[in-house]
Design a protein around this nucleic acid. Sequence first.
DNA 1: GAATGTTTAGACTAGA
DNA 2: TCTAGTCTAAACATTC
Length: 307
Amino acid sequence: MPRPGKNSYSDQKPPYSYISLTAMAIQNSSDKMLPLSDIYKFIMDRFPYYRENTQRWQNSLRHNLSFNDCFIKIPRRPDQPGKGSFWALHPDCGDMFENGSFLRRRKRFKVLRAEHMACKTSPMMHYFHHHHHHHPGSVGRLPHFQSYGGITCTQPGGFKHPFAIENIIGRDYKGVVAGGLPLTSVMHHLGYPVPPQLSSVVNSMWPHVGVLSESMSGVPVPAPSSEYAPFSVSAKGLYHSASGPTLPAIPVPIKPTPSLGPMPGLTGMQTGPTQLCSAPTADTIVTPASEQIIEMHQWRRCVGVKN
DNA sequence: GAATGTTTAGACTAGA
DNA sequence: TCTAGTCTAAACATTC
C-alpha cells in the first residue's frame, strides 16, 4: 500500500473511506472545523484521485456528513458570512476505527437521540447534555472534559481522538477541548473574547499547536513548526515508521470512558437553574477553561446572545 | 443558479 | 449466510 505522502497517491484511490478523509481534513485544520468547500479542497489537494469525478465523490461526501453522527454541523457566526456551515468531528466519535483500517469502522458512530438535537447543533452543548446525564447533580457547573487530553484534565483512560494531531503525528497535542477543538479556537469561533492570560498560557504550553493566532488573542504566537505543516500530518502520522510503510498508525483508539462517573473535585457544585444564567466573572476565567467556555455559552444563551 | 444539506434506495463488501 | 458499513446515485429543499 502506498504511503499517503503529498503526491504519493497519483491517480490511485486512497485507502480511506470518505469518513476518514473528511475526518482527516477537519482534524488537520487549525480550528478543527471546516466548511464543506475546504474539505473538498483538502481532499483534492492531497489525493489527485479526487480531482476527477468531483460530482460523484462530493455528493457521497455530503451524504456522509449528513448521515453520520460523527460529524457535527456548526453554523456560521453572523460575522462570518458565507455559504454553508462548518463541519467538525463529534467529541465522542473516537472509537470508530479498528486495526488501523480507515476503510471500515468497527461500528458506526451513533449519538443517542436525546442528545442528538443538542450535539448536532453544538458540540459544546452536547457536552452539557452528555455530562449532565452522567452527573445529574451537576447542573450549571459544567463537567470536566475528560476527552482528548483537554486542557482541564489528564485522563487515566488515555482516550485520544483517532484523528487528533496527537495521534496523527505522534506527539503531544494538548490545549484541545471538545471534539479536538482547540480551546481558544472554539472560544474565538463562538464569539467569546479570548482572555490574554488564557491564550498566553495555551501558547506557552503548546506553541507547536499554533491554535491561537495573534489576531485572535492579541498575544504573539510563535509560528508553527514546519514539522507540523498541514500535510506532514498525513505523511508522518498515517503510517507507523516502526512497523514499516504499510500499516496506518492512527487508530486502534483507546476506548473512551463509557460512563464518566463522579469526578474528583466536583463536590460542592452548585445546582439549580439559576446557576445556568449566572454571568461569568473575571475570576472564573482561568479556572478549568473548557468549563468556563460552556458556562459562557450557556450564559449567552440565557441572556439571548445568539452565536 | 450554484452550492450546500437531507433523505432514500440499492449494490457491494468485510466481518461475525 | 447475515449483518452492518460503505459507496453511489438521485431527488429534493434550503441558502447565498
